[in-house]
């Protein structure tokens, strides 16, 4: 699968972060980007579009990122979710990975990091078809 085919879900309550993420993802070739502005909406969009990769903030209203992650993993145990947070303590990283996240990025993310992660995930998706 190439970058333009990947479905990416960006979940953050900050309109600025969603704008920056979407801009960076478009720059690296993503064409199917969906945004969600809180934890509940994140889960709903996840169930609707079944994305190849999710960037998920932890501190969000309605439902926090870790709760949303649990719902996503319950809906699809093969969900590929990368947690993105400004609070990158070891405890948070461990909580996220224990809950089923595949990686953790501390905010603010840069384009090179996003590209590296997408390349890695798309490589995995090619080896193991998306469910």
């Amino acid at each position: 699968m190439n970058m333009s085919e990947a479905k990416v879900l960006v979940c953050d309550d900050s309109a600025l972060i969603r704008k920056k993420f979407t801009g960076m993802l478009e720059n690296i070739g993503c064409a199917h980007i969906t945004e969600a502005a809180n934890g509940q909406e994140s889960v709903e969009r996840f169930q609707e579009i079944n994305p190849h990769l999710v960037f998920l903030d932890i501190v969000m209203p309605e439902k926090d990122g870790l709760e949303a992650l649990a719902d996503m993993v319950e809906h699809n145990p093969k969900a590929r979710v990368i947690i993105v947070s400004s609070a990158g303590t070891q405890t948070h990283v461990k909580q996220a990975l224990d809950a089923g996240a595949v990686d953790f990025i501390q905010k603010p993310a840069d384009e090179a990091t996003l590209k590296k992660m997408l390349d890695k995930e798309l490589q995995k998706a090619s080896e193991s078809p998306h469910v």
Binding site: S14, A15, L16, I17, K19, S86, A87, G88, K107
Partner: peptide, 21 residues
């Protein structure tokens, strides 16, 4: 604007996040 509000909100959030780290 909404973007301005998000930006200042994110500034405080980023600062508080670094503080918790």
């Amino acid at each position: 604007t909404e973007l301005a509000q998000a930006a200042v909100g994110e500034l405080l959030n980023l600062h508080n996040g670094l503080f918790t780290v």
